[in-house]
Amino acid sequence: MDVSAIMIKSAVVIAYAFIGTFIGLLFLGVGRKIVARVHNRVGPPFYQGFIDVAKLLSKKTNISHGWIFDLALLFSISGILLAFAFLPVGGIKLLSTDGDAFLVLYLLAIPALGFALGAGASGNPNAGIGVMRALVMMLSYELPFVITMIALMIYYDTTSIARIVELQSVNGISSWAIFIPPFMLAAAVADMALQGMLMEQPFDIPVAPHEIASGPMVEFGGKYLGTLMLYKAISIVVETTLFVDFFLGGGVIMHGGIVANIANFIVWFVLIFIVFTLSLLINTAFPRFRIEQAFTFYWKYEAILATVALIWVYWMVI
């Protein structure tokens, strides 16, 4: 392919990434509002996320622990924007034809790795413990998630997310994966995996503020914490979009024309909001799992359910 064409395409995609940032920050505020309403509180305004980031980025002094610490800032935001670029958003394919689900899965590891390096370089023991928990959590939720992902890939005979979304939108809503029996099970499993991915309760032990002083983020302040908040905001969008693309047809309900694009985009937005709200409601209802409990939960119960779904799909395909 022509390099300049790819560059233009990438630039357009990054523009989308800023929309993603906007939605993510909105979700942060709205999420806090929802949690507050469940607690019978008023809660912050829905635009609180923007205010927090603006404040953090406008801090007068920032401290760093050397160049490895700075990698956290550079990797976290660029990695998550990159992951967002490789996901189809509301039927708009962005760069997702140039990569596939495995690429997205591994792109999501870039910010985590940068974050982990920065936390490690801060030299704080709490950060080390926090990263350990985050990594173990990652190992835990990836197993059921990966199994459900493979079930999808085998069913649709492709690994490209764009293609999966395309195949799900053939007959409108009725051909979404979630309406196929084994994938109902798979979606339930993947939703719990998503809970761990979003680090919402009961799986928020890696950043437990009162036990290990917010874990990996313990030395982050000012612009560093600001970028991490941006990362968190975009990761909400990316991870919920991943779920929507896999099981809810990426929110595609119509084909062709600008109207369809807008409609798809709105449906996508509503769907990721629903998925996010669901995870928030689970968040408010549960206390925190210890890390070994989370590990056992994912590798025992979730993995068995996911395997059942996988074998079911395999049996359907063969």
Binding site: M1, V3, I6, M7, K9, S10, A11, V13, I14, S78, L82, A85, F86, L95, T97, D98, G99, D100, A101, L103, M153, D157, T158, T159, S160, R163
Partner: peptide, 15 residues
Amino acid sequence: LASYNTIAVIVALMI
């Protein structure tokens, strides 16, 4: 099944 384009990843990373 899919394709993997390094130049797309690198350019997107740069941006």
